[in-house]
């Protein structure tokens, strides 16, 4: 990637490059527009009740307070909700990765009977509105005495087909020659997957992990229906109770809970993000 001249420079041949300048201006504008809601969320969350509605809006409270956060952690089992969410997200993500890597291989590389049908059925579930699955799933879980367990919250989410689709597309981009070389060395299919496909799929695996983890972390309706004690309740469900429904809208409380729910997912994303664009970039979405 070494360049003989610096492409990001504002100057070219000694004079100001107006095109560049405009691009920088747009870039800064975009960053402000997308960043402001986060900042506003945080600033509001540390405002005491009597400062929230101050007009014109202030970008820093006179008396910043962490009251809403301390209440969240002291009066509510916030750590238990965090732990539950984490357990659920880890189960879902692990299960998704293992099953998708395994299933993605034959779908990408093998010719077998029923391949088209299987793909078609799996992909068509992208269209399924989740709402109609809720009640049958709930009744099934209760029937097998699984309601209110981590199993019931975490496992159904691993049936989502998005990760499988991504893995399949990614595996298709791995050069056939590598696989054939491996086969000449006497590798079994499982060996090929383990020694060739998985090591080359870091970015795709990271991408599926991020998508799955974030979706699981933010899932609301299913955990709400299936779990009803603090022993299994996840962060979004717990926070819905903390926030409350009703007319007494308190934006400080709302913003503190939104921030508290968001931060772990942000951290998870930032840790994995350097793999992220690469993961999508090589999944061969261009067909």
């Amino acid at each position: 990637m070494s360049q003989s001249w610096r492409k990001d420079s504002l100057y070219r041949d000694g004079s100001l490059n107006w095109g560049r300048l405009t691009l920088y201006a747009i870039l800064i504008f975009v960053a402000i527009v997308w960043g402001t809601p986060f900042i506003w969320m945080f600033v509001t969350s540390i405002k005491p009740d009597n400062e929230v509605f101050r007009y014109p809006p202030t970008w820093w409270p006179n008396e910043p307070t962490l009251l809403f956060y301390t209440r969240l952690f002291e009066s509510f089992p916030m750590m238990a909700w965090f732990r539950n969410s984490l357990i659920v997200a880890v189960i879902t993500t692990t299960l998704t990765l293992v099953t998708n890597v395994l299933a993605g291989y034959p779908l990408a590389r093998m010719r077998f009977r029923g391949r088209t049908i299987v793909l078609l059925i799996i992909l068509s579930t992208f269209l399924l509105p989740g709402e109609i699955l809720l009640v049958p799933l709930f009744l099934g879980m209760v029937k097998f005495k699984l309601a209110n367990t981590f199993f019931s919250i975490a496992v159904p989410a691993a049936a989502n087909a998005f990760g499988l689709f991504l893995m399949t597309q990614f595996f298709r981009t791995i050069p056939v020659e590598l696989e054939e070389a491996g086969r000449l060395d006497g590798c079994s299919r499982l060996g090929l997957l383990w020694r060739i496909f998985i090591p080359l799929s870091g970015p795709a695996i990271a991408t599926v992990a991020i998508f799955t983890f974030v979706r699981s972390w933010n899932d609301f309706f299913w955990p709400l229906v299936i779990s009803n004690t603090d022993a299994t309740r996840t962060v979004p469900v717990g926070l819905a109770i903390f926030v409350g429904a009703g007319l007494s809208i308190r934006f400080g409380v709302l913003m503190a809970s939104a921030a508290a729910a968001t931060i772990p997912a942000v951290i998870f994303f930032l840790m994995l993000q350097r793999y992220f664009v690469r993961g999508i970039s090589t999944t061969g979405l261009r067909g």
Binding site: R71, S75, A240, F242, V243, S248, V253
Partner: peptide, 10 residues
């Protein structure tokens, strides 16, 4: 019960 919200729950 349906008394949600920080104050009510506490």
């Amino acid at each position: 019960h349906g008394w949600t919200g920080a104050d009510n729950t506490e």
